[in-house]
Design a protein around this nucleic acid. Sequence first.
DNA 1: ATTTTATATTTGTATATACAAATGTTGTGT
DNA 2: ACACAACATTTGTATATACAAATATAAAAT
Lengths: 151, 151
Amino acid sequence: MKIEEVIKATVPMSLPKKIILNIMYTQNVIGENFNEIVKAHDLSPEQYNVLRILRGQKGKPANMCVIQERMIAKTSNTTRLVDKLLLKELVTREVCPDNRRKMEVAITQKGLDLLKELDPTIDNHENRLAQNLTPEEQETLNTLLEKYRTT
Amino acid sequence: MKIEEVIKATVPMSLPKKIILNIMYTQNVIGENFNEIVKAHDLSPEQYNVLRILRGQKGKPANMCVIQERMIAKTSNTTRLVDKLLLKELVTREVCPDNRRKMEVAITQKGLDLLKELDPTIDNHENRLAQNLTPEEQETLNTLLEKYRTT
DNA sequence: ATTTTATATTTGTATATACAAATGTTGTGT
DNA sequence: ACACAACATTTGTATATACAAATATAAAAT
């Protein structure tokens, strides 16, 4: 469905404007599905994201600003996200012995188990959308997005 | 900048996953800039969006569900967005005489003036990002995004 | 050693969002 | 006409987000 149909545009739009609306709307479509998946396991998308980052650390704990800089939405409130994950015992949080300003956050076995349980559904979601494109088109889309946002 | 660098990925990712992260992150970059622009005029991005929709009506008022279906984020609370715009006298809201369930929302001259003032900055923002791509690449990006989210 | 500056995280608060329930109105079937 | 379903919008509420200010620690400057 063309973006003009999605927003039922009444006036013609420039190509740059269409691109922006297209990206915004596509993100929304992705987000809605993603939200449903993680919500079924009592996670918010951002909470899932933090767990994913911590798993990527492969056992090494991450401090708050490392988590922050790896998140997609750079303005998320990491403290409160980690608070929520702590309550569910999906992560641990301790003061860093080398630098008492920093916190060491690590994923627990329970957190790893939850991610493992979610993995197939998430992968499926990612692949289902990408299947609309050939592998070459997928590469092109990826490259164009990166080029597009070059400052 | 490649998406792997943006989120400082420690493990290799599938192409479908990269595309999703790329779209989410690009939307974030766009959104941050856009937010700054409209915030300088005391609007939220969604408030701007409603004004834009109303201008597209060319004088004809729109009722709430028409506004809703033209928005990018389909879960926005249109009532409260219009409340805010009313307070600033950027729109009017009256009960529809033909069907008292419906409301007729229209943009005021003050609203039109505000949009006109914002237009060059918004266009500039849209064009600046698109300039990183050739016109052909812009077309391709647009087409691929639409194909990507085909259900 | 003490003040200043920079860093890391947390907290407060106002606003926004998501989603269910409530309200009021219109259309339909009997 | 009356009951009931469908529709359009609003309201309540819990949670999330954005952003500034506060707190605590460490590093640098004097």
